[in-house]
Design a protein around this nucleic acid. Structure first.
Lengths: 146, 146
DNA sequence: CCCAATTCCGAGTAACAATATCGGGATCGC
DNA sequence: GCGATCCCGATATTGTTACTCGGAATTGGG
Protein backbone atom coordinates (compact mmCIF):
# COMPACT_ATOMS: atom_id res chain seq x y z
CA UNK A 1 0.00 0.00 0.00
CA UNK A 2 2.85 2.34 0.68
CA UNK A 3 5.93 3.41 -1.20
CA UNK A 4 9.10 1.89 0.26
CA UNK A 5 12.21 3.84 1.09
CA UNK A 6 13.67 2.90 -2.27
CA UNK A 7 11.26 5.11 -4.13
CA UNK A 8 11.34 7.87 -1.56
CA UNK A 9 15.13 8.00 -1.23
CA UNK A 10 15.53 7.65 -4.96
CA UNK A 11 13.39 10.69 -5.72
CA UNK A 12 15.07 12.69 -2.97
CA UNK A 13 18.49 11.80 -4.34
CA UNK A 14 17.54 12.73 -7.87
CA UNK A 15 16.04 15.97 -6.64
CA UNK A 16 19.48 16.73 -5.22
CA UNK A 17 21.05 16.02 -8.60
CA UNK A 18 18.45 18.21 -10.27
CA UNK A 19 19.25 21.06 -7.88
CA UNK A 20 22.86 20.89 -9.07
CA UNK A 21 22.15 20.35 -12.73
CA UNK A 22 25.06 21.47 -14.90
CA UNK A 23 27.46 21.71 -11.96
CA UNK A 24 29.36 18.50 -12.65
CA UNK A 25 29.02 15.17 -10.92
CA UNK A 26 27.76 14.90 -7.34
CA UNK A 27 29.03 12.06 -5.18
CA UNK A 28 26.76 9.74 -3.26
CA UNK A 29 28.52 10.85 -0.10
CA UNK A 30 27.38 14.40 -0.71
CA UNK A 31 23.82 13.34 -1.42
CA UNK A 32 23.77 11.11 1.62
CA UNK A 33 24.94 13.93 3.85
CA UNK A 34 22.57 16.55 2.45
CA UNK A 35 19.50 14.33 2.56
CA UNK A 36 20.40 12.33 5.66
CA UNK A 37 20.52 8.94 3.97
CA UNK A 38 22.85 5.94 4.07
CA UNK A 39 25.57 6.17 1.46
CA UNK A 40 25.86 2.42 1.00
CA UNK A 41 22.13 2.10 0.60
CA UNK A 42 22.09 4.83 -2.03
CA UNK A 43 24.55 2.75 -4.04
CA UNK A 44 21.91 0.11 -4.43
CA UNK A 45 19.49 2.67 -5.80
CA UNK A 46 22.04 4.30 -8.10
CA UNK A 47 22.82 1.06 -9.90
CA UNK A 48 19.36 0.45 -11.43
CA UNK A 49 18.88 4.15 -12.13
CA UNK A 50 22.12 4.16 -14.09
CA UNK A 51 21.21 0.99 -15.96
CA UNK A 52 17.83 2.53 -16.80
CA UNK A 53 19.57 5.53 -18.34
CA UNK A 54 18.24 8.07 -15.86
CA UNK A 55 21.59 9.02 -14.39
CA UNK A 56 25.17 8.74 -15.62
CA UNK A 57 28.15 7.95 -13.45
CA UNK A 58 31.61 9.47 -13.44
CA UNK A 59 34.08 7.15 -11.79
CA UNK A 60 37.20 8.02 -9.88
CA UNK A 61 38.07 10.89 -7.59
CA UNK A 62 35.87 13.98 -7.99
CA UNK A 63 33.43 11.62 -9.67
CA UNK A 64 29.78 11.11 -8.91
CA UNK A 65 26.45 11.10 -10.68
CA UNK A 66 24.61 13.44 -13.00
CA UNK A 67 21.19 13.40 -14.59
CA UNK A 68 21.35 11.69 -17.97
CA UNK A 69 18.80 14.10 -19.43
CA UNK A 70 17.34 17.47 -18.42
CA UNK A 71 15.42 17.56 -15.15
CA UNK A 72 12.39 18.73 -17.10
CA UNK A 73 12.37 15.39 -18.90
CA UNK A 74 12.51 13.11 -15.87
CA UNK A 75 9.28 12.50 -14.00
CA UNK A 76 8.77 11.19 -10.51
CA UNK A 77 7.03 8.26 -12.14
CA UNK A 78 10.15 7.40 -14.13
CA UNK A 79 12.17 7.09 -10.94
CA UNK A 80 9.53 5.13 -9.06
CA UNK A 81 9.10 2.61 -11.86
CA UNK A 82 12.81 1.89 -11.93
CA UNK A 83 13.11 1.45 -8.18
CA UNK A 84 9.77 -0.09 -7.28
CA UNK A 85 8.66 -1.76 -10.47
CA UNK A 86 5.45 -1.13 -12.38
CA UNK A 87 2.97 1.15 -10.65
CA UNK A 88 -0.24 -0.28 -9.25
CA UNK A 89 -2.51 -0.03 -6.22
CA UNK A 90 -2.83 -3.83 -6.21
CA UNK A 91 -0.79 -6.51 -7.92
CA UNK A 92 -3.83 -7.43 -10.01
CA UNK A 93 -4.15 -3.85 -11.32
CA UNK A 94 -0.51 -3.15 -12.07
CA UNK A 95 0.25 -1.22 -15.25
CA UNK A 96 1.51 -3.37 -18.07
CA UNK A 97 0.83 -6.55 -16.11
CA UNK A 98 -2.94 -6.90 -16.06
CA UNK A 99 -4.36 -9.97 -14.38
CA UNK A 100 -6.91 -11.00 -17.03
CA UNK A 101 -8.79 -13.40 -14.80
CA UNK A 102 -9.13 -10.86 -12.00
CA UNK A 103 -10.12 -8.15 -14.45
CA UNK A 104 -12.95 -10.22 -15.88
CA UNK A 105 -14.20 -11.98 -12.75
CA UNK A 106 -13.52 -9.75 -9.74
CA UNK A 107 -16.32 -7.25 -9.15
CA UNK A 108 -13.97 -4.89 -7.33
CA UNK A 109 -11.25 -4.85 -9.93
CA UNK A 110 -12.48 -1.66 -11.51
CA UNK A 111 -11.88 0.21 -8.27
CA UNK A 112 -8.25 -0.80 -8.12
CA UNK A 113 -7.80 0.17 -11.75
CA UNK A 114 -9.20 3.62 -11.11
CA UNK A 115 -6.90 4.20 -8.14
CA UNK A 116 -3.91 3.02 -10.14
CA UNK A 117 -4.77 5.43 -12.95
CA UNK A 118 -4.98 8.36 -10.53
CA UNK A 119 -1.62 7.49 -8.98
CA UNK A 120 -0.05 7.30 -12.43
CA UNK A 121 -1.61 10.60 -13.42
CA UNK A 122 0.03 12.40 -10.51
CA UNK A 123 3.51 10.89 -10.58
CA UNK A 124 3.80 11.16 -14.35
CA UNK A 125 2.81 14.80 -14.32
CA UNK A 126 5.56 15.98 -11.98
CA UNK A 127 9.12 16.38 -13.22
CA UNK A 128 12.30 16.89 -11.25
CA UNK A 129 12.33 20.39 -12.70
CA UNK A 130 8.96 21.05 -11.06
CA UNK A 131 10.37 19.95 -7.71
CA UNK A 132 13.36 22.26 -8.06
CA UNK A 133 11.17 25.23 -8.95
CA UNK A 134 8.84 24.50 -6.07
CA UNK A 135 11.76 24.21 -3.66
CA UNK A 136 13.22 27.52 -4.82
CA UNK A 137 9.84 29.19 -4.49
CA UNK A 138 9.39 27.80 -0.99
CA UNK A 139 12.87 28.89 -0.05
CA UNK A 140 12.10 32.45 -0.97
CA UNK A 141 8.69 32.23 0.60
CA UNK A 142 9.00 30.08 3.70
CA UNK A 143 6.03 29.08 5.79
CA UNK A 144 6.45 30.02 9.40
CA UNK A 145 4.07 27.96 11.44
CA UNK A 146 2.90 29.35 14.80
CA UNK B 1 3.03 0.59 -2.52
CA UNK B 2 0.39 -2.02 -3.06
CA UNK B 3 -2.72 -3.05 -1.20
CA UNK B 4 -2.27 -6.34 0.64
CA UNK B 5 -4.69 -9.22 0.48
CA UNK B 6 -6.35 -7.98 3.64
CA UNK B 7 -7.86 -4.99 1.90
CA UNK B 8 -8.61 -6.85 -1.30
CA UNK B 9 -10.23 -9.84 0.36
CA UNK B 10 -12.07 -7.61 2.79
CA UNK B 11 -13.73 -5.59 0.07
CA UNK B 12 -14.55 -8.72 -1.92
CA UNK B 13 -16.11 -10.29 1.16
CA UNK B 14 -18.16 -7.22 1.93
CA UNK B 15 -19.26 -7.03 -1.68
CA UNK B 16 -20.63 -10.52 -1.21
CA UNK B 17 -22.54 -9.39 1.87
CA UNK B 18 -23.84 -6.38 -0.04
CA UNK B 19 -25.07 -8.65 -2.83
CA UNK B 20 -27.16 -10.50 -0.25
CA UNK B 21 -28.31 -7.49 1.70
CA UNK B 22 -31.53 -8.20 3.59
CA UNK B 23 -31.29 -11.96 3.08
CA UNK B 24 -30.13 -12.81 6.59
CA UNK B 25 -26.64 -13.65 7.74
CA UNK B 26 -24.08 -15.15 5.38
CA UNK B 27 -21.43 -17.48 6.79
CA UNK B 28 -17.73 -17.08 6.17
CA UNK B 29 -17.72 -20.53 4.65
CA UNK B 30 -20.16 -19.37 2.01
CA UNK B 31 -18.14 -16.23 1.28
CA UNK B 32 -14.93 -18.20 1.13
CA UNK B 33 -16.40 -20.64 -1.36
CA UNK B 34 -17.98 -18.01 -3.59
CA UNK B 35 -14.92 -15.78 -3.72
CA UNK B 36 -12.28 -18.48 -3.54
CA UNK B 37 -10.69 -17.36 -0.29
CA UNK B 38 -9.45 -19.07 2.87
CA UNK B 39 -12.16 -19.31 5.50
CA UNK B 40 -9.76 -19.12 8.41
CA UNK B 41 -8.07 -16.11 6.94
CA UNK B 42 -11.40 -14.36 6.49
CA UNK B 43 -11.98 -14.77 10.21
CA UNK B 44 -9.06 -12.48 10.84
CA UNK B 45 -10.58 -9.85 8.61
CA UNK B 46 -14.08 -10.20 10.04
CA UNK B 47 -12.96 -9.48 13.59
CA UNK B 48 -11.76 -5.90 13.07
CA UNK B 49 -14.62 -5.15 10.68
CA UNK B 50 -17.06 -6.19 13.38
CA UNK B 51 -15.27 -4.20 16.05
CA UNK B 52 -15.33 -1.19 13.74
CA UNK B 53 -19.09 -1.49 13.40
CA UNK B 54 -19.11 -2.23 9.69
CA UNK B 55 -20.57 -5.71 9.96
CA UNK B 56 -22.58 -7.50 12.63
CA UNK B 57 -22.25 -11.15 13.53
CA UNK B 58 -24.90 -13.75 14.29
CA UNK B 59 -23.42 -16.62 16.22
CA UNK B 60 -24.44 -20.24 16.20
CA UNK B 61 -25.83 -22.48 13.53
CA UNK B 62 -27.33 -20.68 10.52
CA UNK B 63 -25.36 -17.69 11.72
CA UNK B 64 -22.98 -15.50 9.80
CA UNK B 65 -22.39 -11.86 9.05
CA UNK B 66 -24.46 -8.97 7.78
CA UNK B 67 -23.70 -5.37 6.90
CA UNK B 68 -24.23 -3.16 9.92
CA UNK B 69 -25.61 -0.35 7.77
CA UNK B 70 -26.91 -0.03 4.23
CA UNK B 71 -24.46 -0.83 1.45
CA UNK B 72 -24.95 2.69 0.17
CA UNK B 73 -23.40 4.01 3.37
CA UNK B 74 -20.24 1.89 3.37
CA UNK B 75 -17.39 3.01 1.14
CA UNK B 76 -14.43 1.04 -0.08
CA UNK B 77 -12.32 3.49 1.90
CA UNK B 78 -14.11 2.55 5.13
CA UNK B 79 -13.17 -1.08 4.65
CA UNK B 80 -9.59 -0.38 3.64
CA UNK B 81 -8.95 1.88 6.62
CA UNK B 82 -10.13 -0.79 9.04
CA UNK B 83 -8.04 -3.54 7.49
CA UNK B 84 -4.95 -1.67 6.35
CA UNK B 85 -4.84 1.35 8.62
CA UNK B 86 -4.82 4.99 7.58
CA UNK B 87 -4.52 5.59 3.86
CA UNK B 88 -1.31 7.02 2.45
CA UNK B 89 1.07 6.63 -0.46
CA UNK B 90 4.02 6.90 1.94
CA UNK B 91 4.23 6.61 5.69
CA UNK B 92 5.19 10.29 5.89
CA UNK B 93 2.04 11.34 4.02
CA UNK B 94 -0.49 9.18 5.78
CA UNK B 95 -3.87 10.73 6.54
CA UNK B 96 -4.28 11.77 10.14
CA UNK B 97 -0.65 10.98 10.90
CA UNK B 98 1.35 13.71 9.21
CA UNK B 99 5.09 13.67 9.68
CA UNK B 100 5.66 17.35 10.51
CA UNK B 101 9.41 17.25 9.99
CA UNK B 102 9.12 15.56 6.62
CA UNK B 103 6.32 17.91 5.58
CA UNK B 104 8.38 21.00 6.31
CA UNK B 105 11.82 19.82 5.19
CA UNK B 106 11.40 17.26 2.42
CA UNK B 107 11.11 18.88 -1.00
CA UNK B 108 9.25 15.88 -2.38
CA UNK B 109 6.67 15.62 0.37
CA UNK B 110 4.07 17.55 -1.59
CA UNK B 111 4.08 14.89 -4.29
CA UNK B 112 3.27 12.13 -1.83
CA UNK B 113 0.50 14.23 -0.33
CA UNK B 114 -1.06 14.78 -3.72
CA UNK B 115 -1.02 11.07 -4.54
CA UNK B 116 -2.52 10.25 -1.16
CA UNK B 117 -5.34 12.75 -1.74
CA UNK B 118 -6.16 11.21 -5.11
CA UNK B 119 -6.25 7.71 -3.64
CA UNK B 120 -8.58 8.90 -0.90
CA UNK B 121 -10.80 10.66 -3.39
CA UNK B 122 -11.39 7.44 -5.32
CA UNK B 123 -11.87 4.97 -2.50
CA UNK B 124 -14.13 7.31 -0.53
CA UNK B 125 -16.35 7.95 -3.52
CA UNK B 126 -17.25 4.31 -4.16
CA UNK B 127 -19.78 2.52 -1.97
CA UNK B 128 -20.59 -1.16 -1.75
CA UNK B 129 -23.92 -0.27 -3.33
CA UNK B 130 -22.06 1.09 -6.35
CA UNK B 131 -20.19 -2.19 -6.68
CA UNK B 132 -23.39 -4.19 -6.55
CA UNK B 133 -25.06 -2.04 -9.18
CA UNK B 134 -22.02 -2.25 -11.41
CA UNK B 135 -21.89 -6.03 -11.01
CA UNK B 136 -25.57 -6.37 -11.88
CA UNK B 137 -25.13 -4.14 -14.91
CA UNK B 138 -22.13 -6.13 -16.06
CA UNK B 139 -24.04 -9.36 -15.56
CA UNK B 140 -26.84 -8.23 -17.84
CA UNK B 141 -24.34 -6.76 -20.26
CA UNK B 142 -21.36 -9.06 -20.37
CA UNK B 143 -18.25 -8.28 -22.35
CA UNK B 144 -17.34 -11.02 -24.77
CA UNK B 145 -13.70 -10.60 -25.62
CA UNK B 146 -12.48 -11.90 -29.00
C1' DC C 1 -31.72 -31.53 25.12
C1' DC C 2 -28.20 -32.58 21.98
C1' DC C 3 -25.61 -31.72 17.86
C1' DA C 4 -23.73 -29.54 14.20
C1' DA C 5 -22.77 -25.15 12.41
C1' DT C 6 -20.93 -21.15 13.27
C1' DT C 7 -18.50 -17.17 15.40
C1' DC C 8 -14.63 -16.03 18.37
C1' DC C 9 -9.84 -16.02 20.13
C1' DG C 10 -4.95 -16.45 20.34
C1' DA C 11 -0.84 -18.67 18.95
C1' DG C 12 2.33 -20.33 15.61
C1' DT C 13 4.81 -20.35 11.21
C1' DA C 14 6.93 -20.47 6.64
C1' DA C 15 8.13 -17.52 3.16
C1' DC C 16 9.23 -13.20 1.59
C1' DA C 17 10.52 -8.28 1.47
C1' DA C 18 12.62 -4.18 3.46
C1' DT C 19 16.56 -1.92 5.00
C1' DA C 20 20.26 -1.73 5.37
C1' DT C 21 25.71 -3.21 6.41
C1' DC C 22 30.13 -4.93 5.00
C1' DG C 23 34.24 -6.07 2.24
C1' DG C 24 36.72 -5.58 -1.49
C1' DG C 25 37.66 -4.65 -6.58
C1' DA C 26 37.84 -1.23 -10.58
C1' DT C 27 38.65 3.42 -12.11
C1' DC C 28 40.23 7.94 -12.33
C1' DG C 29 41.78 13.05 -11.10
C1' DC C 30 45.43 15.12 -8.88
C1' DG D 1 50.68 6.46 -6.61
C1' DC D 2 46.90 7.73 -3.57
C1' DG D 3 42.74 8.68 -2.12
C1' DA D 4 38.12 9.39 -3.63
C1' DT D 5 34.67 7.32 -5.84
C1' DC D 6 31.88 4.09 -8.36
C1' DC D 7 30.82 -0.89 -8.71
C1' DC D 8 29.44 -5.60 -7.24
C1' DG D 9 28.02 -9.31 -4.42
C1' DA D 10 27.24 -11.26 0.02
C1' DT D 11 25.27 -11.10 4.56
C1' DA D 12 22.29 -9.84 8.42
C1' DT D 13 18.45 -8.27 10.84
C1' DT D 14 14.00 -7.20 11.23
C1' DG D 15 9.37 -6.93 10.05
C1' DT D 16 5.35 -8.18 7.22
C1' DT D 17 2.40 -11.21 4.78
C1' DA D 18 -0.59 -14.73 4.41
C1' DC D 19 -1.87 -18.00 6.20
C1' DT D 20 -2.66 -22.44 9.40
C1' DC D 21 -4.05 -24.68 13.59
C1' DG D 22 -6.53 -25.87 17.81
C1' DG D 23 -10.00 -25.15 20.57
C1' DA D 24 -13.65 -22.41 23.34
C1' DA D 25 -18.29 -20.13 23.23
C1' DT D 26 -22.79 -19.72 21.15
C1' DT D 27 -27.11 -20.97 19.10
C1' DG D 28 -30.85 -22.78 15.87
C1' DG D 29 -32.93 -27.13 14.34
C1' DG D 30 -34.29 -31.81 15.14
Amino acid sequence: MKLSTKGKYGVKALFELAMNEGAGPISLRTIAERQGLSEHYLEQLAAPLRRAGIITAVRGAQGGYMLARPASQITVGDVIRVLEGPVGYTDCSTEGEPDPECASTCPVHGVWERVTQEIIKVIDSITLQDLVEQALADRGNPMYHI
